[in-house]
Design a protein around this nucleic acid. Structure first.
Length: 220
DNA sequence: AAGTGATTCAACCGCCTGCGC
DNA sequence: AGCGCAGGCGGTTGAATCACT
C-alpha cells in the first residue's frame, strides 16, 4: 500500500528517491504511449519495475487517462449541453466525478472535477459580490470565498421554486418567486426534474439576484 | 509595459476497494 | 481470515496563464 502516497517528510527509501515527479516530458509521454500500445492500459506498476520510466504506476495511469488517451477533448471548453449534464448528474450522484465523466465522451473525471470546482468558485464569488453591504457589516466581515458552503443539491416540492438559496439575504427573492410575484420565474413542468436542478446553475443564480441588483438592494 | 489578482488545469496526496496469495 | 499490493477515486495544491488596471 501507500505506493502513491506517503508523507515525504521522513527519509525516503532509495527506491522512492529515484521516483520522478512533476510535469511530464515529451520523451516520457512517448515511452508511456509505446508501453500502452504494446501492453494495453494496464499493469502500470510494471512500467517502473521494468525500468522504462522512473514514475509510479499511479502517475503513469493518471497521465494516460488524463492526457494521452485517444479521443480526449483537450483544450476544449465544456459546451452548454455538457454543462447541463454535469449539473444534472452532480445533483443526482453527488461528487462522483468518475461516474459523471462516463456520461461525457472525451471528458475525464479530472476535467469534470476541475470544471465543477471552477464553477463553485465563480458562484461563490457571484453571491459574495451580491451580498448587501449592511449584511456584511452585521457579520463584522465579508465572507471569504472558502467559507461559502458546499451547497447541497436543491430539493423542493414546489416546481415553481426549484432553487433554495444558501444566502439568507437573498431568500426574500426566492419567496417572491414562490408567491408568483415575479414574471420571469423559470417554470419547470416536471417536478422530478425540478428536484434535480441545482443552485449552482449560474444562469438561474443570475436570474435570481438580477431583480435585487435592479432594486439597488445589492451593492456590486 | 508592468503589476496584481483571478482563473485554469496538471499532477500529487491520501484513502478506499478489490484481488491474489 | 488476514495481509500486501495495485489501481481507482475525490480532494487539494501550485505553477502557468489570463484579464484587468
Amino acid at each position: 500500500m501507500h505506493s502513491g502516497g506517503g508523507s515525504g517528510r521522513k527519509e525516503l527509501p532509495e527506491t522512492a528517491a529515484a521516483i520522478r515527479k512533476g510535469p511530464w516530458m515529451a520523451e516520457e509521454d512517448e515511452v508511456l504511449m509505446d508501453f500502452v500500445k504494446k501492453h494495453g492500459p494496464r499493469d502500470w506498476s510494471s512500467i517502473r519495475s521494468k525500468g522504462l520510466l522512473p514514475r509510479t504506476g499511479k502517475s503513469c495511469r493518471l497521465r494516460w487517462v488524463n492526457k494521452l488517451k485517444p479521443d480526449l477533448k483537450t483544450g476544449c471548453k465544456f459546451s452548454a449541453e455538457e454543462e447541463r449534464i454535469v449539473i444534472d448528474l452532480q445533483a443526482r450522484f453527488g461528487n462522483k466525478w468518475a461516474r459523471i465523466a462516463t456520461c461525457l465522451p472525451g471528458r475525464t473525471d479530472n476535467d469534470v472535477k476541475n470544471f465543477w470546482s471552477t464553477r463553485q468558485k465563480r458562484l461563490a464569488r457571484l453571491l459574495q459580490t451580491a451580498l448587501p453591504v449592511r449584511s456584511q457589516r452585521r457579520q463584522g466581515k465579508a465572507p471569504m470565498t472558502a467559507e461559502v458552503p458546499n451547497f447541497e443539491p436543491i430539493v423542493t416540492s414546489c416546481a415553481l421554486l426549484p432553487y433554495t438559496l444558501p444566502c439568507p439575504d437573498l431568500i426574500p427573492f426566492t419567496e417572491q418567486y414562490s408567491n408568483g410575484q415575479c414574471s420571469h420565474v423559470p417554470y419547470i413542468e416536471d417536478p422530478d426534474s425540478a428536484k434535480t436542478l441545482h443552485m449552482l446553475n449560474l444562469d438561474a443564480t443570475a436570474l435570481l439576484i438580477e431583480p435585487a441588483i435592479a432594486n439597488s438592494e445589492i451593492c456590486l
